[in-house]
C-alpha cells in the first residue's frame, strides 16, 4: 500500500465539475463538502453537497441569501448530496458513480419549458 493520498479541499475539490463516470454527463459543481467527526473527534469528508443551498452561503451577501431563498421557495430543505464513496476519481473533474436524480430546477425547466417545444427529444441535425 502506498502512502495515503493528500488533497487540498479548496484547491482540488471545491468548485470542480462533477461528472458521471459512466457516460461523462455533467452533474453539478462541488458547491460544498459535508463533514462528520470520527471516533477521535477529527473531521472527515462524508459527501459532496450541491445546489443553491450549498452554494448560497459560500457566495454570501444579498445574492447568496437570494439564491438559498429561491431554493427554499421551491420546497428544498437541504442541499442534495453525493456520498463520498461514490467518488471514483479526482482529477480535472470529480468522477462519480451511481444514479442521480436530476436537480429540481433542471426537472422543472425540462417538463414545463423545454419539452413542450417541438424537437426537444431529438438529436440535432
Amino acid at each position: 500500500m502506498t502512502a495515503a493520498r493528500v488533497v487540498h479541499a479548496q484547491l482540488h475539490l471545491l468548485d470542480r465539475q462533477v461528472v458521471r463516470a459512466r457516460d461523462g454527463r455533467l452533474v453539478c459543481k462541488v458547491d460544498d463538502l459535508e463533514l462528520a467527526l470520527d471516533d477521535d473527534g477529527r473531521p472527515y469528508v462524508t459527501a459532496i453537497l450541491m445546489g443553491p443551498l450549498a452554494l448560497g452561503p459560500r457566495v454570501g451577501g444579498v445574492l447568496g441569501r437570494l439564491m438559498a431563498g429561491a431554493a427554499r421557495l421551491l420546497g428544498a430543505t437541504a442541499p442534495p448530496r453525493i456520498p463520498m464513496e461514490h467518488v471514483s476519481r479526482i482529477a480535472g473533474a470529480v468522477h462519480v458513480g451511481g444514479d442521480l436524480e436530476p436537480p429540481a430546477l433542471e426537472h422543472w425547466v425540462r417538463t414545463h419549458l423545454v419539452e413542450p417545444i417541438p424537437g426537444a427529444r431529438h438529436e440535432n441535425e
Binding site: A4, R5, V6, V7, H8, A9, Q10, L11, L13, L35, D38, D39, R42, P43, Y44, V45, T46, P83, M84, E85
Partner: peptide, 26 residues
C-alpha cells in the same frame, strides 16, 4: 483559514474506500 489539507486515511466508507480526513489547516 485559506485551505484545508485532507489525507485519505479516515474511516472506511461502506467498505469501499477510506474517507478524506482533515489533517491540518493552511
Amino acid at each position: 483559514v485559506a485551505d484545508v489539507r485532507l489525507v485519505q486515511d479516515g474511516p472506511m466508507l461502506r467498505q469501499v474506500q477510506h474517507a478524506f480526513r482533515v489533517a491540518g489547516l493552511i
